[in-house]
Structure formats: structure tokens, C-alpha cells
Nucleic acid binder design. Structure first.
Lengths: 213, 213
DNA sequence: CCTTTTAGACTGACCAGTCAGTGCAAAAGC
DNA sequence: GCTTTTGCACTGACTGGTCAGTCTAAAAGG
């Protein structure tokens, strides 16, 4: 009866139990670190919030830093996928590149709305130097920015966007615009709806704030 | 009340010597905290970098947190003054509000170029919750954003800017655009000149990226 | 002479990481 | 069947180090 290879998935070191524990730890770590910062957050707090013993943290991750790095990789992976999906959907619908950018702005806002703690933590760590996870962050940032740069590049090639734009700088500015507007919305202007924020940013993207009439 | 203002100087505790020591401590703290974060930076390190005994830190500030809060107040004061000056100069020259915004973008970039460490540290702390200096930051952020909001409001009233814009959100987005583009420039695109960054942002502001031709 | 700074020893709290041990379910042995 | 073994996942008390903040006596500054 039980002669089959029942234990195989125990071998890839991600049994259901383990995965569930890791998920609880990510969840606990992300909010605590977003609130307090990495150094001010203790492993005891993370364990307590996750409802596991401290030893379990070290059974699942080799250090506090490693837990944090995996968290970063995981979160930015989600964001990148979501931006890419927005761009792809627009392309499939036969939309313009500007529409794609607009869709990506919305996707960014939806992401931040859903994972505000992760976004806080990402922004807070991104421009620090001399930190253990600098190299992880650099890679992970480039993935996300590259998605925007690609759409900008396509837009320029198809003459939909101005030849004058500086792609890397414009991509950074757009990402920053969305990131900061969204965090500000979450932190200081909670009463606004996602649509409010989206249309304010959309107006800016389309140059209808101060553009020639 | 004018009988003897002799002690006022002593009472606001800012003899020349003290001021010089405090300045050395700000300077040391700002770079260390920008690199490592508040919690990961020790008072011993700050004192050593400032070339001062540890006791001196506590003679001048009642705690590490208080040193940091004063640093924040001081830095944002500089930024706000510089944005305001840019807006005022444009107005005196009889420039438009859009020109004023453009001048403020440049002033922001110049500030970040001069005090990159302060900017890093500000961004890293701004959206954290549950920190001792949250309330200080809130006040100080509002001062800076208000300068931008005022110019936007004047622009709308004089019909120079679209009635459709949402002033608080647009102000936040503009500030974010400058902040993130500048930090990205400093961290990942050092080879670009301030003018490159300024014209990329200017193009966005004027809606010449994707605006109607 | 009053203020400010120095050097550095000291304390008490706090915290990352360790390790010997527990619980438990599936397999092996009988 | 039933009991013994195996190994995974987890536990929590403990350790060694670190750091904010204090204290002192004496020197430097003005």
C-alpha cells in the first residue's frame, strides 16, 4: 500500500510544514521590520509574532540577515511579476505603450496597497550603502526597473514617446513618483481612494498638469 | 524687559565652542546613520568619527535619539529654505509657476547633491511607523511639502495649471519623483550630470514624455 | 572661575546565535 | 499487531558579546 515514494517531497527541504512556518516568519518579519527597521527588530520579536520558538527561526534560516534577504527576493519577485503582467496584458489588448505605463502605475499602486509593509521596508533599505544585503538589493532593483525601461524603450522606438527622454533616468523618476506618492497616500492621506491616486499620477504621466494646452 | 539680556546667549546654550562641537557631531552622525541606519550606528562610532569623547555627546545632547531628532529638524530646515528661495526668486523675476516648479526641482537636486547622506536617512525614516521621532518627522515633512503645494495652488488659481490636479497628491508625487530620481542617480548612475537629471525631470513635469504633441 | 571637553572604566539591559533535548509520524524490525 | 528506530521540525534556556548611558577627576578654553 504505502510502498510508493511517499517521502520524496520531504527531501527537497520544503515540506508543507516547513513552508507554512517560513510563511509565518516572512509575514511577521515584514511588518516588524517595516515599522522599526532591520536592526531595531529582534529575532525574539519575529519569533513571538509568528508564534514559533526562536530556535525555529534558526532552523529555517541561517541568520537574521538571510531571513531578510530571502524576504527581499520574494517581495520584489512579486512586484516585478505584477508589473510585467500589466505590461503584457496591455500589449495583448493592442494598447499603446503609454497605456502600458498607465497600467503599470496602477499595478504598482495595487501592489503597494496590498503589501504596504514590504514597500516601506524596501524603500528604507534601497539606498543604504555598506549593508550586508546591498548586492541582493542591487540585483533585485534592476529587475524591477528593467520592466519599466523596456516599455519606455519600445515607446521611443515606435515614436510614441519623445526621442529626447533619458530612459534610465525617466524610469527611475516614474518608479519614484509611484513609490513615494503611494507611501504618502498610505501614511498621510489614508482617506483617498486608489483611483484618486491613480488619476493624479496618470495626469502627471500624460503631461496634463502643465503641458501645453 | 530690556534690563539685562546678558545671559540669553548662555541660556540658549550655544557658545561658539558648543556650536562647533555640535556641528562636528551632526556631520559624523549623518553619514554613519545614512550608511547603516539609526540602530546599527553606535554612539561610540559617532564620537570617534567626530573626533570627540563619548561624554561630549552626552554633554551636548540628552540622548542618541535627541541628537537624531535635532539632525532631522536641522536638515529639513535647510531643504525647505532652499525650495522656498527657488520659488521666491522665480516670482521676483516674474517667472511662471511652472518655471517656479522647475526651479524647485533644480533646488531639490542641488540639495541632494550636496547632502546625499541626509537625504538617504530622511527617506529611510519617513514612512516608518512606531518610531520615537515619528511626530518630529511628520511636522518637518509637512513644512517641505507645503512649499510645493503653495506653488501648485497659485498655479491653479491663475489658470496656469489644470483645475483637475489634486494638489496634495501631485505635490507628493513631484517630491517623490525628485527624491527617488536623485537618490538613484547618486547610488546607481553616478556618471550622469546634475543637468542630465534635471532635464529628464523637467521633461516629465512639462508633459513632453507622452503628452499630446 | 565658569564652561566645556577629555579619557576611559563601569553597569545593566538587551540580543544574536547555540545546543541539548522533546514530540511525532513514518518506516523497519520482529 | 507492536515496539523500536529514524529523522525532521521545533523548543527555549543559556551564553558571550555589545552598547546606551553614567561617572569621575582632571585638563583645556575663554
Amino acid at each position: 500500500m504505502r510502498s510508493g515514494p511517499v517521502r520524496i517531497d520531504a527531501m527537497d527541504s520544503s515540506s508543507t510544514r516547513r513552508r507554512a512556518t517560513r510563511a509565518k516568519l516572512y509575514e511577521a518579519a515584514v511588518t516588524l521590520i517595516a515599522e522599526q527597521g532591520f536592526s531595531a527588530t529582534t529575532v525574539d520579536e519575529i519569533a513571538e509574532r509568528a508564534g514559533v520558538a526562536k530556535g525555529t527561526v534558526y532552523y529555517n534560516f541561517k541568520s537574521k540577515t538571510e531571513l531578510f534577504e530571502e524576504l527581499l527576493r520574494y517581495g520584489v519577485g512579486l512586484l516585478t511579476a505584477s508589473l510585467q503582467a500589466a505590461a503584457d496584458e496591455t500589449a495583448e489588448r493592442g494598447g499603446t505603450r503609454v497605456e502600458a505605463l498607465d497600467a503599470m502605475i496602477r499595478a504598482g499602486l495595487v501592489f503597494i496597497d496590498r503589501y504596504p509593509a514590504f514597500t516601506q521596508l524596501y524603500v528604507a533599505e534601497l539606498w543604504r550603502t555598506n549593508r550586508a544585503w546591498q548586492s541582493t538589493l542591487l540585483v533585485v532593483r534592476q529587475q524591477a526597473v528593467a520592466v519599466v525601461e523596456t516599455v519606455l524603450r519600445e515607446g521611443v522606438e515606435s515614436d510614441e514617446l519623445s526621442r529626447d527622454i533619458d530612459i534610465p533616468l525617466t524610469a527611475a523618476a516614474l518608479v519614484g513618483m509611484v513609490l513615494v506618492a503611494a507611501l504618502d497616500w498610505q501614511a498621510f492621506q489614508r482617506e483617498r481612494s486608489l483611483d484618486d491616486v491613480h488619476s493624479a499620477l496618470s495626469l502627471l504621466l500624460h503631461g496634463r498638469v502643465s503641458g501645453r494646452r
